[in-house]
């Protein structure tokens, strides 16, 4: 027997913001993966220091190149925000320029990280410190790839006309995930490159 529900007012259709909510959950999960790796790094480093062992070879980690990554990502925060603002104003050309610039900054970050990973001269099997250096940076790179792919797909969907001021949610979701990944670098930068 099906219970009657026809006597009640019809449900009002509201925009569910599903993509944004899903992205928030995905961002939380991504951040926890990153924290999982970073906490092992911090713990191992604390143990090495307590036992007066070397963590990194002296002078191999420089602040300059990682600072450029930091600066690039700061700029990208503005460009993703620009994309969200533009799509809300139905300004499609500005949206594409902003998304394109964000993707370009992402490519620049990959280039800078490639330089850093080669410049330090570490080996994966060169000790726990060097291994964890690669693990933290590698985890960040994986999520950076995801964020760039998200931006790229949003850009493509915008090109084929999926977005407008009433359907700006995917751009906001891509921007949210981007900012999550940028936050990861800020934390990694402080823990690895500043405090070493």
């Amino acid at each position: 027997m099906t219970m009657p529900t026809t006597g009640l007012p019809s449900a009002e259709v509201t925009r569910p913001r599903t993509v944004l909510v899903g992205t928030m959950f995905a961002s939380a999960a991504s951040m926890m993966v990153f924290f999982g790796v970073l906490l092992v790094y911090i713990t191992e480093r604390a143990q090495a220091r307590a036992l007066h062992r070397d963590w990194f070879p002296e002078g191999r980690i420089e602040l300059g190149p990682s600072g450029f990554v930091f600066a690039t990502l700061i700029l990208s925060i503005f460009t993703v925000r620009w994309a969200v603002q533009a799509i809300n104003n139905d300004d499609r050309p500005n949206t594409f320029v902003a998304l394109g610039l964000s993707g370009l900054f992402g490519a620049a970050v990959f280039n800078q990280l490639w330089f850093i990973l080669n410049d330090v001269g570490f080996a994966l099997a060169g000790g726990t410190g060097q291994f964890m250096f690669f693990m933290v940076n590698g985890t960040f790179i994986v999520f950076m790839i995801a964020a760039v792919a998200f931006i790229f797909l949003t850009f493509l969907r915008g090109l084929i006309g999926h977005f407008g001021p009433q359907k700006a949610e995917s751009v906001a979701a891509a921007a949210f995930y981007w900012n999550t990944v940028v936050t990861m670098w800020f934390i990694a930068w402080y823990v690895i490159y500043v405090t070493k």
Partner: peptide
């Protein structure tokens, strides 16, 4: 969503360590 990613991090560390890490 808040805890299983940490397991994923553990698995990634163990895998990379097994495949070429210092064995820590």
């Amino acid at each position: 969503l808040l805890t299983l990613p940490i397991l994923l991090a553990n698995l990634a560390i163990a895998y990379v360590d097994l495949r070429g890490g210092p064995g820590t």
